[in-house]
Every structure is written in C-alpha cells, then in structure tokens.
C-alpha cells in the first residue's frame, strides 16, 4: 500500500505522529506534502489556539534542540508513543522522514498544480489528510483509493468544526470517524466509526481533543491496514439531506461544553462502533 501524507506544517505533531505510526506498522509513506511552517495566518491561528505562552514554549522547543527537557516535550502528551524515537521525540516531519526514508515537499497550497503534480509523481494508493487546505477535486482524485480523514465526531451526525464540543452540547455521543474525503465538508464514505470511551477521564476540552486525536491516529492505522488486507470497505453516509454542518464554537458555548464534560454528562449509545 503506497500511502502519502498531507500535512498543515512540517512541525505538525499530528502529521508527524501519523507518519511515524504508519511507518512503525510497516506503511512507510511514499512522501509527505506539507504547507510551510511560518505563514502569517497559521501563526495567528496558532497564537489564537494556544495562547502566547504555549506558542512561545513550542517555538523554543523547536528552536532549542540542545535542551534535552524540551526535546522530549510534546504539546499533545497522548502522541508521545507515536512520536518517541530513541531517547527523544520526533520534533518535525523532516526528522521522521530522515529516519524512515521518505521525501517531504513543502507547498504553499495543497490544491496548487505543483502539489497535484508532486502527488501524481508519488502515485499513492491512499493519502492521509492531517491538516491544511480545503481539498479540491483535482487533489481528491489523485490517490487511487482516495484521501482519508480522521474526524473527531460521529458522522453523519456532527460535521464540520469544533466537533467534539458540538457533540457534547447536542447530546450526540463522542466519537471518531475515519472517512474518505469528498468535495463536501465531512460528507465522504465512512470506513470506521467508533464511540470514544475516554471522555470521563478528561479534565478539559483541550485534553479531550488531544486524547481523541491520538485515538484517531490509531484508527487511521487500523483503517490503512484494513484497506490493505481488504477487510473493510467504505460505506456512503446516510442522512446527507439533513444539514449537519457545524461551525467554530463561540467561547461562551465552549464554557458550557466544558462544564458538561467535567460533570460527566456524556451520552453513550450502545452499538455505535465500526461503520
């Protein structure tokens, strides 16, 4: 199985963890296509997401490789298993690539002709999307089987942004869906759909997201192996006529979702597992 990785930044922990995890399982990527690390909008977005202190901390960790304590630090502690390498952790995609021997190509836009040409050159059976642009048709149709995405909610109930938070507020069980991407927002055929059981241990929405991202990576690995062995097949999403798209959640509603999480008011539906 020839697998390519699409990444939002060479320093994306999720991108690194997916690449490393697949390589550990024997699916060494044929290449990784990443957006640049320091464009203005990403920087502002990260500042907004992480705050100044964490962003500075992260930047120092990237720029100060001599300090062993920082070398070992990862923002998402649940990715440590996938990112651990010897006595340190992978700090970037290029380190993973050097270790496992695959190329990393930077592009300004994952939909650009250059990016499409590069993907075609790698001729992947499958690509894994770990972040970046909204993908257009010309990219979506390059990998033979398609492009996989790990969505942090059960589909088709909750599509779009802030999906764990919306699951909490709308009374939909927390879950992860591995699906093929199409031109809609999280509307592609489903490979795996699994309820997330670890929410009771979470103390914040950030913690919840981190755990779900880590579990999503395991599910990606499971999906790749399943596709390779031919044991799973995509199932088109039901109920697409209903508009289930959600958007970035306002902080005031996030506060309610956090309370719900802390109070352990979680929905669970038996039998919500692999799709």
């Amino acid at each position: 199985m020839r697998v390519a990785i699409l990444c939002s930044s060479p320093y994306s922990e999720t991108g690194c963890a997916v690449s490393a995890r697949l390589a550990q399982l024997g699916y060494v990527p044929v290449g990784a296509l990443t957006l640049p690390s320091w464009d203005r909008s990403t920087l502002l977005r990260k500042l907004g997401q992480w705050g100044l202190r964490d962003s500075l901390h992260y930047a120092i960790a990237k720029l100060a490789p001599g300090k062993s304590t920082l070398r070992k630090q990862v923002l998402n502690p649940y990715l440590e298993r996938a990112l651990r390498h010897g006595d340190g952790v992978f700090r970037g995609l290029r380190e993973v690539a050097r270790t496992y021997g695959f190329p990393v190509v930077t592009c300004g836009d994952q939909n650009s002709p250059r990016a499409v040409a590069q993907l075609k050159q790698w001729s992947p059976d499958l690509a894994i999307f770990t972040g970046g642009n909204i993908l257009r048709d010309q990219v979506l149709k390059v990998p033979r089987l398609g492009i996989l995405n790990s969505h942090l909610a059960l589909l088709p109930e909750i599509r779009g942004m802030s999906s764990p938070e919306w699951s909490l507020l709308c009374g939909v069980p927390l879950g992860i869906t591995i699906h093929f991407m199409d031109s809609g927002i999280d509307t592609g055929p489903i490979l795996l759909r699994r309820e997330f059981a670890g929410a009771a241990d979470c103390d914040s929405l950030a913690d919840l997201r981190n755990r779900m991202i880590a579990e999503g990576i395991e599910l990606i690995a499971e999906a790749v192996a399943g596709l390779d062995r031919g044991t799973i097949a995509p199932v088109p999403q039901a109920g697409r006529e209903k508009d289930c798209q959600f958007f970035v959640m306002h902080e005031q509603l996030k506060a309610v979702a956090t309370r719900r999480l802390k109070e352990g008011r979680l929905n669970s539906v038996a039998g919500r597992s692999d799709g």
Binding site: W166, L169, C170, F246, F247, M249, H250, Q252, L253
Partner: peptide, 12 residues
C-alpha cells in the same frame, strides 16, 4: 444552537 453560536459571534 448553531443560530445562537452565530449570533454570539456577530454580537462580538
């Protein structure tokens, strides 16, 4: 709740 969410942002 998506209506409330959008309105909160608009008011901000």
């Amino acid at each position: 709740l998506r209506y409330l969410n959008a309105a909160l942002k608009m008011n901000e």
